[in-house]
């Protein structure tokens, strides 16, 4: 496990000069993943904020081989690369041991690329899929996705007299990935850099498929101040909205237990997309969110004690 001092001496994976917004959580997440990842490395990036803002021709911010893929097939592309590598290795045409990472946003993972991801996990390619969850289609202008939490404002779940933002709860993708037997699955976020880098190291040393879901706050879409990105990620963990856990060989383990579980209001009130929930008539929605989080947390505690 690398300390911050060791990480600071490594080659930067995502260099400066990319055009992600100021204070973007994805930039932090990808930097941390690539600092922890061993070399040599091949990455595939699905369409999304990350792809359009880090590979603007003729510039690239990536310090490793990178393939841009369509929205739905980052996992299929990286499994093809891995299969080609294994074939070349068997014929002794390649000596080095490569590592493979696919990056996708929540739109590319929760919704559009789910079948490609599920297929790649089931075929047991040796790769890591990183989902950068910012809870909506931010690149095209904040449309709802399968990762958008209940009650959140987006341009396609407007707030008005009839609807208090999104009406459905987000899908639990990490649990879906964990349902693929023999996959290393983890959930983490940028504020807990040690947890994140440890999980990446573990995933890439694992002989099989792995999946890491990273919460990456989006100042534009969440209507927050740029400087608060990391603080909001930390609060998501402390309120148990985004628990840190991993699933290894079918064993669920919680990596961070908050000493005192904070009420979800503390996380909601920092974000403009939840502003309407604090009106008197929408109070029941907050209660609903709190109840849901409590039950999910109890479920997780039960799973980890199995």
């Amino acid at each position: 496990m690398a300390s911050l001092k060791e990480l600071s001496k490594r080659k930067e994976g995502l260099v400066a000069g990319h055009r992600l917004c100021a204070g973007c959580g994805e930039g932090i997440a990808v930097r941390q993943v690539l600092l922890a990842a061993p070399r040599p490395l091949v990455c595939a990036v699905a369409t999304g904020c990350l792809e359009v803002s880090t590979t603007v021709y003729p510039y690239t911010s990536w310090n490793c081989s990178l393939i841009h893929t369509a929205f739905e097939n980052a996992a299929a592309t990286i499994s093809g690369v891995e299969a080609a590598f294994e074939a070349l290795k068997a014929r002794r045409k390649i000596g080095e041991d490569f590592h493979f990472i696919a990056f996708g946003g929540d739109g590319a993972t929760y919704d559009i690329g789910l079948q490609a991801l599920s297929g790649a996990l089931e075929r047991r390619h040796r790769f890591l899929y990183v989902c950068l969850d910012n809870g909506a289609y931010m690149n095209t202008g904040i449309q709802r996705s399968g990762a958008t939490p209940l009650g959140a404002w987006t341009t396609t779940t407007p707030v008005g007299k009839k609807e208090p933002g999104k009406l459905e709860w987000r899908k639990n993708l990490t649990a879906i990935a964990a349902a693929h037997d023999g996959t290393y699955v983890a959930q983490t976020t940028i504020s807990h850099w040690k947890d994140l880098t440890q999980k990446v190291e573990k995933a890439l040393s694992y002989n099989g498929p792995s999946f890491i879901n990273i919460l990456a706050p989006c100042p534009r879409g969440w209507r927050t101040k740029e400087s608060q990105t990391v603080r909001i990620a930390r609060l998501a963990v402390e309120t148990c909205y985004w628990p840190l856990f991993e699933v290894e060989n079918g064993k669920w383990q919680i990596n961070f237990q908050p000493r005192e579980k904070k009420p979800i209001e503390e996380w909601l009130k920092l974000q403009g997309r939840f502003k309407h929930l604090f009106k008197e008539e929408n109070r029941p929605v907050i209660e609903k969110i709190q109840n849901y989080i409590d039950t999910e947390w109890e479920k997780l505690l039960a799973l980890s004690s199995l």
Binding site: G17, H18, P58, Y59, S61
Partner: peptide, 14 residues
């Protein structure tokens, strides 16, 4: 439109 040089966005100033 392949980009042949890694990490060259350093030339682009933000």
């Amino acid at each position: 439109a392949t980009i042949l040089e890694a990490g060259n966005s350093l030339y682009y100033q933000t």
